[in-house]
């Protein structure tokens, strides 16, 4: 049976038809064609599908689509404003924190969730925040350095 699901995606209200067994990842990728959350394992173990739900990181592959009704979902598509990259995006790019790029959107959102709550995290706090996102290229050191650079204020938000 299909249900109308309404939620807020990257600041915009959306309505979409969804089955009860559809995951948020299914709805984002297969129905809304929001492609930054990646399908890596379908069971919450890799982190490539991480999105923010009301500002908190969640696995979109483990989130029932219908359960996000009325809530706010953010993907990497919602990060850059008017073409201006988010500080984390610039820092990831300049620190070579993305190799193949498949884990990158999830990794950036995991880092964003941390910095939004804790703008000046310790090394351990950063490692803890990103340790749920597997990267087989092994970019962890570069991701750490990128997040540290943002936390130090080296990538101030570009004012419009």
């Amino acid at each position: 049976m299909k249900y109308i699901l309404s939620f807020v995606l990257n600041g915009q209200p959306v309505d979409v038809l969804a089955e009860p067994t559809d995951t948020l990842l299914d709805v984002l990728r297969e129905k809304l064609r929001v492609m930054s959350p990646k399908r890596g394992c379908d069971e919450g173990d890799c982190g490539a599908c991480t999105v923010l739900l009301n500002g908190e990181p969640v696995r979109s592959c483990l989130t029932l689509a219908l359960s996000v009704a009325g809530q706010e979902v953010m993907t990497v598509e919602g990060l850059s404003k008017n073409g201006k990259l988010h500080p984390l995006q610039r820092a990831f790019h300049e620190h070579y924190a993305a190799q193949c790029g498949f884990c990158t959107p999830g990794m950036i959102l995991a880092a964003k969730a941390l910095l939004d709550k804790n703008p000046h995290p310790t090394r351990e706090e950063i490692v803890e925040a990103i340790s749920g996102n597997l990267c087989r290229c092994g970019t962890y050191q570069e991701v750490l350095e990128a997040v540290q650079a943002v936390a130090r204020g080296e990538y101030a938000e570009v004012k419009e």
Binding site: E43, D45, C46, I130, G138, Y140
Partner: peptide
């Protein structure tokens, strides 16, 4: 699964 085939994490 990645729960049981153990890759390194950032930690």
């Amino acid at each position: 699964t990645f729960s049981d085939y153990i890759l390194t994490t950032a930690a």
